[in-house]
Every structure is written in structure tokens, then in C-alpha cells.
Design a protein around this nucleic acid. Structure first.
Lengths: 151, 151
DNA sequence: ATAGATGCAAATTGTTTGCAATCTA
DNA sequence: TAGATTGCAAACAATTTGCATCTAT
């Protein structure tokens, strides 16, 4: 349930299009959506919101820290709700399923490496591309499976 | 020095455009080049090779394992010679400098993670975005600095 | 000779922008 | 009401493709 506060705090006016777009992400907490995905969902919902507005909102929301943006190999950017936690992604090469994970050891090692090279790390992208081992891999559109790795 | 064999072995005909494109990468072993970078270099060299041909060649060379493709945040794909070794990248947020590194521990951990999630890892992208700590960071176009981390 | 390669222009795809009309604070 | 926001169409940037013409094998 997106609250108007989320927008106000970012200096963005509370408008219908923006609230509806946030709602879409609330209703799809497990997904990684492209601008077009969001646009289609809105259209399906019978809402008349332009694609350009979606793009503008996504950009603003990302800057405001409400959303996180990812660039997988697909060429299109995908967005997900910023749940505060940082995590990396594993994309299934069979069905495009996205599994999230986070490994503190890797995170630590990254900082050490940057440090050793004379840099202060600001961000990173880590994405694994892999094949399902188990049989039951449905060839379906993008879908997310949350997963917390033992630490 | 690109050898015709590199192309023949891939089932690609040895043509002037292809050889010249390979040469460009040989002459810029340290760089990460976009299709347009390659095209401009060729034009500068007085060669009349179409941009579409460059794109086609880059794709074919990547599939043939001669080049490696990277998608940084820039939106454009960059290519580099496949030197056999795997490595990850660190991009300087100030000057776009690209530093290469490889950390066996991270590699190992990645495989373990994929394994634990029920996947067999095929590939991965790891890119760190960071700020130079030291002063001498020139704001210049993309340029690569090779670096082997202690292992 | 012939399948494959090239150049050019036109087409695609994902994303951004100009602008007049329309809203929020 | 003033300044922000929206929708639409046009503009863009990166990459791909159709096709008639060449070229390596």
C-alpha cells in the first residue's frame, strides 16, 4: 500500500498516475518490471496513463530511492520496489526466472578489492546466469523467486 | 596480430572487413570498445566499412569466442578481445576508467550460491562502480588499466 | 558457381523530450 | 494562481534487417 508520504517526502507531487504506478509495484512485490510491463498493467487496469509518464515516474522513483533499477542482458531496464535490503540476482537461462540472493562474503571481498585498487566502491551489479538443475523449469515469462541464503 | 585462422576456425570467411575489425582490437588490447568506437577507428584508418558490418562482425566474433561483450550502465555494449582469462570490471565513476580484476574467492562463492539454489552457473557479470580515492583522476574518455590482483 | 558477406537505407526497439493542456499545493 | 505534471507525438540512440551487389572458396 503506497502512501502519499512516500511521494511527498521526495518532493514529488501526489498525483493519480504516480500513485497508481507505485501500486503496481506493491501488487507485484516479487517481480522485476520493465516500463512497458508497468504500462500494460495500467492499461489492463483500465487506467489511461501514458508510457512517457511511466518512464518519467520510474526515473524519479529510482532517484527518490523508492525503486531499484537493474540492467540485465535483455536490453531493457527492470525495476523493483526498494525494500531497503541489497541483493544480487540470478537469472535462469531457461525460463528467465529471477532469484535474489545476498552473500556477505562476496560483498566484503568486493569492498576489499576496490580498496586495494584505490577506489571507494559506490555500487555494484552482480548477476549470475544459470541453468536449472531440476526438471521442473517451466518456460515462462519473467517471474521472481525470493530466497535468503544462509549466512 | 589476428590470424586468418581465427576466422576460419569459426566457419567465417576471411574477408577484409573482418580482418580489419580484429586488427582494431589487437591494436587496442587495453580498451573496451563500442561498435561505434570500432567504426570510427576504421574510418580514421581510411577504411570504408559500414557500421552494420561492424555490428554483424562483433556479434559473430562474440559467438565465435574471439571477443567478449560487456554491458555496463552506459547503455552501449562494449567489446574486448577474449584473452581466455575471465575477469570482472570496476568502472570509475569520475573518469569512466575501467580496471579489470579477478578474485577466485568470489568466483568460488558464486558457484556455491548457484548450486545451493539449484542452478548450474553458466556465466556472470560483476561490475563495481567506484570513486577514485587518489587525486590524480583525469576526467577522460574510457580507458582501461589492467590489474592483476594478488591471489 | 554459389553460398556467404557487404553497404546502404529503412525499420525496430527502448527511452527521452517539446509542448500545450491539466492538475496539485 | 504558479509551477509541476501529464499525454501525445515527434525525436533519439543503439542495434538490426531487407536487399541488391560483391567476393571468398
Amino acid at each position: 500500500m503506497p502512501s502519499p508520504k512516500d511521494l511527498q517526502q521526495s518532493g514529488l507531487k501526489v498525483t493519480m498516475p504516480r500513485m497508481k504506478i507505485l501500486e503496481v509495484f506493491e501488487r507485484h512485490r516479487e517481480s522485476h518490471l520493465t516500463a512497458d510491463d508497468v504500462y500494460r498493467i495500467l492499461v489492463t487496469d483500465g487506467l489511461d496513463i501514458g508510457l512517457a509518464t511511466v518512464y518519467r515516474a520510474l526515473t524519479q522513483f529510482e532517484q527518490a530511492g523508492l525503486l531499484q533499477k537493474q540492467n540485465f542482458e535483455s536490453g531493457k531496464a527492470v525495476f523493483e520496489l526498494n525494500r531497503g535490503d541489497h541483493h544480487d540476482h540470478l537469472v535462469c537461462l531457461q525460463c528467465d526466472r529471477v532469484v535474489e540472493f545476498c552473500d556477505p562474503e562476496i560483498e566484503k571481498k568486493q569492498a576489499e578489492i576496490a580498496d586495494k585498487l584505490g577506489f571507494r566502491i559506490q555500487a555494484h551489479d552482480l548477476c549470475l546466469y544459470a541453468d536449472c538443475i531440476d526438471q521442473g523449469c517451466p518456460h515462462r515469462p519473467t517471474q521472481t523467486v525470493l530466497s535468503n541464503l544462509p549466512r
